[in-house]
Design a protein around this nucleic acid. Structure first.
Length: 268
DNA sequence: ATGGTTGTAGGACAA
């Protein structure tokens, strides 16, 4: 059976149960990885997902901020939650699912946004973001080449020139500074990861997954960024069957500022 | 150059 894995920064899962349901009914990914659920574990809308056939649910929630979750039609063989930067933030959740005789690890991440000022000496949030990326590098680097792994999430970095509406104008804007893009590229290169979206969409083609709430008309101005990513390791690379970025979801009622991204992986 | 919006909470703060 081919496998489909989706990632979506939902910006409050409780406020958006309607559009999440709409997405699951129309696209039916096997696994949906959510970021910014903005609730504690007990307040996660379990019933909404179970009714839609997503009976396997793992949550790493937090009061008010951040929080990640994974809902699945396939059972989880194991779960794991990792803390980063010695903080109590809920920014990581991993599950393992069966893949024939083997298993696939799926890591769901929410990288800190980093605040406004792109200077780690004056902005502790940016310093935290860089430290988080450094910790990610040492953590996902080793062993990544051999094991079938998927890494998804809101990485809050748009690494390539065509991942933002204006490379020149965003070079000093948090999410596209060389300090961030160089770190993200070092992580993917060091771990031999394949950026699934760019595996299918040429690097000279604009591709966004996020549009600010602050624009008067997100579609007309189209000042987007590609902050949401799906990466796979070498054992899954040759099985990649497609990517979908659901930009129309930005226009749904009461939307998240991020849209779902779905990767399809063929049989072994 | 600045300000623009959304969410959690019930006042700032994060994004």
């Amino acid at each position: 059976m081919p496998l489909s894995i989706a990632t979506w920064n939902i910006n409050s899962v409780r406020l958006r149960t309607r559009i999440v349901s709409r997405f699951l009914r129309s696209h039916a990914p096997d696994v949906l990885c959510l970021q910014e659920i903005k609730c504690i574990n007990d307040n996660f809308p379990y019933k909404t997902f179970r009714r839609l056939g997503y009976r396997h649910i793992a949550v790493n929630g937090q009061m008010g901020y951040h929080g990640v979750a994974m809902v699945s039609r396939l059972p989880f063989l194991a779960e794991e939650r990792k803390g980063f930067c010695g903080k109590g933030d809920s920014r990581h959740l991993a599950v393992w699912i069966a893949d024939g005789e083997r298993s696939i690890a799926i890591h769901n991440l929410y990288v800190p946004a980093g605040g406004d000022e792109p200077d780690p000496r004056v902005n502790p949030k940016f310093e935290h973001k860089l430290a988080f990326l450094d910790e990610m590098k040492s953590w996902v680097g080793a062993g990544a080449q051999r094991d079938p792994m998927v890494l998804v999430g809101d990485l809050n970095v748009a690494p390539l020139e065509q991942d933002v509406w204006s490379h020149r104008q965003l070079l000093n804007v948090v999410s596209h500074t060389p300090m961030e893009t160089e770190r993200l590229n070092a992580i993917s290169t060091g771990g031999a990861w394949t950026d699934v979206a760019r595996h299918f969409v040429p690097a000279d083609e604009k591709l966004y997954t996020w549009w600010s709430y602050r624009a008067r008309d997100w579609k007309a101005s189209n000042r987007g960024r590609r902050l949401d990513h799906i990466w796979v390791t070498q054992p899954l690379r040759d099985r990649l069957a497609g990517i979908e970025t659901l930009s129309e979801a930005r226009g749904w009622t009461r939307p998240s500022d991020h849209v779902p991204v779905i990767a399809k992986i063929g049989d072994a």
